[in-house]
């Protein structure tokens, strides 16, 4: 033991020294430091807790904000859509009204023009008849019975003689729609006569349309379906020219 250097005195010195160091460190180092560490840990935990709460609050706020935003956006979009639709509807309505008025006006104008034209032609017919009669008188040198003359002219123009359509004599027509073209507008009586005539030979409820075309010069052109009965002066002149050649 002595050679190892162990002796009770030095051993005791070391033990007491260690105990002194233990006491010193415990009082001055461990206690305050551990207390401080605990305090710090608590502070850190509290800080973390606060941070967590704050983060949650922020997340909630962000969610709310996003919701509000999307709602507002949806509302705005809806409003815009509604406004657009309304505007479109109004525009469409306006346009439709305008179109309708326009077309009405146009129709009215067209009808007026037609009427005017027919009236003019009707007047013309009288004058043409008078002129023709006068010319014929001068030509023939004799006075025809004025009534007879008028009947002749009427026949010439309308192709209707003694209540019968001249052109239709001897030819049979079939169909549900007839188109009658005259050089000058027909009178009401003549129209009625033509219609009656046509209806008697055509089917029931057949439609009869009257047209005016001065280029045929006189007589009537009746067109039923794909059949054309040409009783016009122009057509007869054409025939004459064909046969003379």
């Amino acid at each position: 033991m002595d050679k190892l250097g162990i002796n009770v005195g030095n051993l005791l010195v070391q033990i007491f020294n260690f105990l002194i160091v233990l006491v010193v460190l415990r009082a001055w180092v461990y206690k305050p430091l551990l207390g401080m560490l605990e305090k710090r840990q608590k502070t850190v935990e509290k800080g973390l807790d606060d941070a967590r709460v704050a983060a949650e609050a922020r997340a909630n706020a962000e969610k709310d904000a996003a919701e509000i935003m999307s709602e507002a956006q949806a509302k705005v979009a809806q409003t815009i859509r509604e406004a657009t639709e309304k505007a479109e509807a109004v525009t469409r309505e306006l346009r439709a009204t305008a179109d309708a008025e326009l077309s009405k006006e146009r129709e009215a104008a067209m009808a007026e023009i037609e009427m005017e034209r027919e009236r003019t032609l009707a007047e013309l017919r009288g004058q043409v008849a008078a002129l023709s009669i006068a010319a014929a008188q001068r030509l023939i040198g004799e006075n025809l019975d004025e009534k007879r003359q008028h009947a002749l002219l009427d026949e010439f123009f309308s192709g209707v003689k003694d209540g019968k359509i001249v052109v239709l004599e001897g030819s049979a027509v079939n169909g549900d729609k007839a188109e009658v073209t005259s050089a000058l507008p027909l009178t009401q009586d003549e129209q009625a006569t033509v219609r009656n005539q046509l209806l008697s030979s055509l089917e029931e409820n057949a439609e009869v349309v009257f047209k005016v075309n001065p280029s045929i010069l006189g007589g009537l052109v009746v067109r039923v379906g794909d059949q054309i009965v040409d009783g016009s002066v122009a057509g007869q002149l054409q025939n004459l020219r064909q046969s003379l050649r």
């Binding site: 250097g5 162990i6 030095n10 051993l11 070391q14 033990i15 260690f18 105990l19």
Partner: peptide, 12 residues
């Protein structure tokens, strides 16, 4: 390197 020291610590 003193056995007294290490022995003291070991005893404690």
């Amino acid at each position: 390197t003193d056995l007294n020291f290490t022995l003291a610590l070991a005893l404690i």
